[in-house]
Design a protein around this nucleic acid. Structure first.
Length: 693
DNA sequence: ACCTGTGGCTGATCAC
DNA sequence: GTGATCAGCCAC
């Protein structure tokens, strides 16, 4: 199947091998296009900025929706001015990114006709010690690697290193520059050094200098402040940011340091076992970027954004961009923004707690997308029926891509198709979220509510039916059910029976059976798989905000419960307490690590307005004098001798801990252990109890 | 300048 | 002590 031919998804202009698009004052866009000989040519295109409005200026759009005029201007500045003037008297809307405007209007997207392997990716790694920069390493996707050694603190040596770096970029001409912590650490550092040395970093495709401005990233519940660097003609990609996005759904990264993330993905550099080198940094960055950025490469073929921006834009925003492109192409007017309001979500419940042997799980396949398509739910403003068309095409595409993946003969083809199907999956799952997205032109909160209501209804029906068959339902959440099957049950029979109860287009999967389940609270449980491995779910059981020694305790405790050893579980508390009192734990496992959700400045403002309470992590950030920003992590431990202390007055940074003069508050940590053990005591047996004979 | 949604649990702090 | 509130993290 040739997926790229869907013009609503991939854009309607097939111009191939565009590797970047940049705005050129006052009314042009420079396209960087890869030629057959490998050279990247610059093609200048005239471009007319535009905005949507009501009223009677400009071009009339069909369909009778509120934003029914399109005004085109001769320059960006003029368009900006005209638009803000119009905005005082009528509804207007415009895209504040000239590249998005151009791509939306032209139907072009990046990377058409290219494979991920055709992208020229360069990796940068800095090595520093307490004296300053010691080496810069570079690598690229062709396998090339080189290291430039720097004499730390020596100005001329640093200057030579920066010049070498800029020269390599100019010579090797990458489309993408990758680094781990590229924005917040490496580029911030290089830009600061360049400023100090009164030199520029001319990394652009026409020698333009590297620039930055303060920006922020929204990654799930985290807001991360960072300097957004840009360089015309190239894309800057931070694998630390990619790892953050990855973890939103996987929630399995212990740390976001390159070393740990590389280990998680099985791409840790072999040579780095005897010490981290600049070279191991770039090798791991290269492998990590290859593992994490394929989906964004495909997204850049779909959405009207530069590659660098497709990474940091939210999914609902990107779906909105597809609507705008298609409505504009068809000359159709746009609806007003929806009326945003809170609405009820998924059905979550727990019916049974404790350890339950032999547990099955079933869920509805893609619940919300299936509900939307099976019942024909579409947002009110979508006169062109794009919402339904795109969603159903994407679902067909994904099935096809998965089938082709299974038939693929080369590893490269397989990974390409895998990236494709997983990109389709991400998009499919974002459509429901788009319905409840206040900034989506075609969002519809009534429909969002209708979708979740139908989801709740279907889940209730499933729970009731399974109950009638004699199953013991344990825990449910939105689209899935954990249950203890009736005596002698057959999964296939249950699956068929359940599907027959459900409306056409709603399918149920019975995906796994477990040796045992520990059901604790809603969204909090642990599963013992048939192969002996264990998975733990829920903030109460495995939160990263929990001190590691307590998390370890809980993990072992739960494992013992699942293995049917409640007495061993009960005995664990005293073992851990002994180790605490003997000082056997290092500070890393005692300390709490938290990500700051706010900048220090914003925290201080809230404190003086009494709109939030003091917190240890922030108080330490202030005391340290370092410039902490939202998203930064702080590890701290509690000092003192009394069990009950005010945390924010008795906290120290874990990095300041002195193993020669241990001052961690043992009573405090023993107290926390006891508190935790008490919460779970009802599920274990106390070792003091007399054995039952 | 940026933004997909709701539901749920826990610890820390603070007002009462 | 108790309950309310916020922040943080997590499930889906």
């Amino acid at each position: 199947m040739n997926f790229g031919e869907n013009e609503q998804l991939f854009g309607f202009d097939p111009l191939p091998r565009v590797v970047a698009a940049e705005f050129a004052e006052p009314n042009a866009i420079d396209l960087y296009v890869r030629q057959a000989d490998g050279f990247t040519a610059r093609v200048r295109e005239v471009f007319q900025p535009f905005f949507w409005c009501a009223g009677d200026a400009g071009l009339e759009l069909s369909g009778g929706l509120p934003l029914d005029r399109l005004v085109r201007c001769d320059s960006w500045a003029e368009c900006q001015a005209t638009r803000s003037e119009a905005a005082s008297t009528m509804p207007t809307f415009w895209l504040n990114d000239p590249v998005q405007q151009y791509l939306t209007q032209s139907g072009r997207t990046l990377f058409k006709g290219m494979l991920f392997e055709d992208l020229r990716r360069m990796q940068v790694g800095l090595q520093t010690d307490e004296n300053g920069l010691t080496a810069i390493a570079l690598a690229d996707s062709s396998g090339w690697e080189e290291v430039f050694a720097v004499q730390p603190g020596l100005v001329e040596s640093e200057r030579a290193a920066l010049e070498w770096l800029s020269a390599q970029i100019a010579e090797r001409d990458p489309d993408v520059i990758e680094g781990h912590n590229l924005f917040k650490v490496d580029l911030a550092f290089l830009a600061a050094r360049a400023k100090k040395l009164k030199t520029k970093l001319p990394w652009g495709r026409n020698g333009e200098v590297l620039k930055s401005r303060p920006s922020r990233l929204q990654i799930a519940e985290k807001t991360i402040q960072y300097p957004k660097f840009v360089v015309p003609g190239r894309h800057l990609v931070d694998t630390w940011v990619l790892a953050q996005y990855y973890d939103v759904s996987s929630r399995e990264l212990e740390s976001f340091a390159l070393e740990q993330v590389a280990q998680h993905f099985g791409v840790a550099d072999k040579d780095s076992a005897d010490g981290r080198t600049a070279l191991s940094i770039v090798r791991e960055t290269r492998a990590l970027a290859a593992a994490l950025s394929r989906s964004y490469f495909i997204q850049a073929q779909i959405f009207p954004y530069n590659y660098q921006d497709v990474i940091i834009r939210g999914n609902a925003t990107k779906i909105d961009a597809l609507f705008l492109r298609e409505y504009l192409r068809r000359g159709h007017s746009l609806p007003d923004y929806p009326e945003a309001r809170p609405f009820e979500g998924g059905y979550t419940d727990i019916f049974k707690t404790g350890v339950i042997p032999n547990v099955w799980h079933c869920d509805v396949t893609s619940l919300y997308p299936s509900v939307i398509l099976a019942f024909g739910y579409t947002p009110a403003g979508d006169k062109l029926d794009l919402f339904r068309n795109l969603l159903s095409e994407l679902r067909t595409f994904r099935v096809a891509a998965k089938a082709e993946m299974r038939k693929a003969e080369s590893a490269r083809e397989r990974s390409q198709l895998d990236a494709l199907q997983s990109t389709f999956k991400i998009l499919i799952n974002s459509f429901y979220g788009y319905l409840g997205f206040a900034q989506g032109h075609f969002a519809d909160f009534d429909v969002a509510e209708t979708v979740t209501a139908k989801g709740r209804e279907l889940l209730r029906l499933m729970v009731d039916w399974l109950g009638k068959q004699g199953a013991e339902v344990i825990e449910i959440d939105t689209d899935g059910i954990y249950f203890h099957p009736p005596e002698g049950a057959d999964a296939e029979v249950l699956q068929k029976g359940l599907t027959a109860e459900l409306p056409e287009g709603i399918d149920v999967e019975f995906d796994e059976r477990y040796t045992a389940m520990f059901s604790y609270k809603a969204k909090n449980y642990a599963l013992l798989h048939e192969d002996g491995s264990m998975s733990i779910k829920g903030a109460a059981l495995k939160s990263r905000g929990m001190e590691p020694f307590l998390r370890d305790y809980l993990e072992q405790f739960v494992r013992r419960l699942l293995e049917g050893k409640p007495r061993d579980a009960g005995g664990l508390r005293d073992e851990v307490e002994g180790r605490l009192r003997r000082g056997e734990f290092s500070i890393e496992v005692l300390a709490k690590t938290e990500a700051l959700q706010d900048s220090v400045a914003s925290y201080q403002k809230k404190i003086s307005a009494s709109s939030r309470n003091r917190a240890a992590a922030f108080e330490l950030a202030i005391k340290s004098g370092r410039d902490y920003q939202a998203g930064d992590q702080v590890s701290y431990y509690i000092t003192g001798t009394k069990k009950k202390v005010v945390a924010y007055e008795n906290a120290r940074l874990a990095s300041e801990w002195n193993p020669e003069a241990r001052d961690e508050n043992v009573e405090y940590y023993v107290g926390k252990l006891h508190e935790l053990a008490k919460k779970f005591a009802e599920f274990a047996e106390s070792p003091d109890d007399l054995p039952l004979l």
